[in-house]
């Protein structure tokens, strides 16, 4: 079973979501909503379902008894496919209902698509890019957008077979004030990964920065654009902030000029996980804004 984050206390939640409603309670999960939907559908259409089950069973038995077992197989296969379609539709609607409730209670607007602007490298990756869902509104006191973003890489092998690989992210976007953006050309904090070292620095327009903390280096890879001012960077990554990123937070982001985009590597579908993600984003945003004050 997936482990979800603990819920935020009410005061903290209202700090993050300034326009949250008085009642911010959420259903347990999308699975609980799906189960509820299936139960309601069964109760509303019980007669029809029972009739279909009986007919399917009779046809299958008669077919098997009269020497046409393949007919029984086809009928059973169609019954399973029908059930899977119903289950899939209910799961999709349950997810939408859950996330709509999430948006409403947090004072956000829920939309099921949006244009992808390549303001940071993450939003320019892949051969296809889309926002599956967007929650727009005021988060951490700023106009921002919480999104389920997916980019797709399309590859073709030597025999012409096409393969598409999706990469799902949950992202949180904040605009930075011009005075803050002017000090930070580009900062990319990602999970620790192997690199080609100086060769990669020479080939790309960014460079790796190693801070003083070995624990930080185990968790994160920090890269900055070549024209990033080092003094501003080290002021942003103060020793206190480094310690916090190592011990308390686990968050990654890409910032280019006025665009700050924080991300996690999957589509978060639990309200507590989304709230925690927004809270961590708030801490990072505050750090950027503090450097301007």
């Amino acid at each position: 079973m997936a482990v979800t984050a603990s819920p935020l206390d009410d005061a903290t939640l209202r700090q993050v979501f300034a326009h949250a409603e008085a009642d911010v309670t959420m259903p347990d999960s999308t699975k609980a909503l799906r189960k509820l939907r299936m139960q309601r559908l069964w109760q509303a259409r019980r007669g029809l379902f029972l009739t279909l089950i009986v007919i399917t069973a009779v046809i299958a038995l008669l077919s098997a008894a009269t020497g046409y077992p393949y007919v029984a197989g086809v009928v059973l296969f169609l019954a399973v496919v029908t059930w899977l379609i119903i289950w899939g539709v209910q799961a999709s609607r349950a997810t939408r209902d859950y996330l709509t409730r999430y948006a409403t209670t947090r004072g956000l607007t829920y939309v099921e698509d949006g244009d992808v602007n390549a303001s940071v490298p993450l939003y320019g990756r892949g051969d296809k890019r889309e926002f599956e869902r967007r929650f727009t509104g005021t988060i951490a006191g700023q106009p921002s957008a919480l999104s389920h973003y997916t980019y797709t890489e399309v590859s073709t092998d030597s025999e012409g077979r096409r393969t598409e690989t999706d990469y799902d992210y949950t992202t949180l976007e904040f605009p930075l004030p011009p005075a803050v953006a002017a000090r930070f050309a580009g900062v990319y904090l990602s999970p620790n990964k192997w690199s080609f070292g100086k060769l990669q620095d020479k080939l790309s327009h960014d460079r790796k920065v190693e801070l003083e903390s070995a624990d930080f280096a185990k968790r994160y890879t920090l890269r900055v654009r070549d024209d990033q001012d080092d003094v501003a960077l080290y002021e942003l990554f103060s020793t206190t902030f480094i310690d916090r990123l190592t011990r308390e937070l686990e968050i990654h982001w890409e910032q280019v000029g006025p665009s700050l985009v924080l991300y996690r590597r999957k589509h978060e579908l639990d309200a507590n996980d989304l709230d925690r993600f927004c809270l961590e984003g708030w801490h990072v945003l505050q750090r950027y804004l503090e450097e301007h004050q």
């Binding site: 190693e210 801070l211 003083e212 080092d230 003094v231 501003a232 960077l233 080290y234 002021e235």
Partner: peptide, 13 residues
């Protein structure tokens, strides 16, 4: 002081 601290860390690195 903040800028000296940041510059010092860069220099020491």
């Amino acid at each position: 002081e903040d800028k000296i601290s940041a510059a010092r860390r860069i220099y020491n690195a």
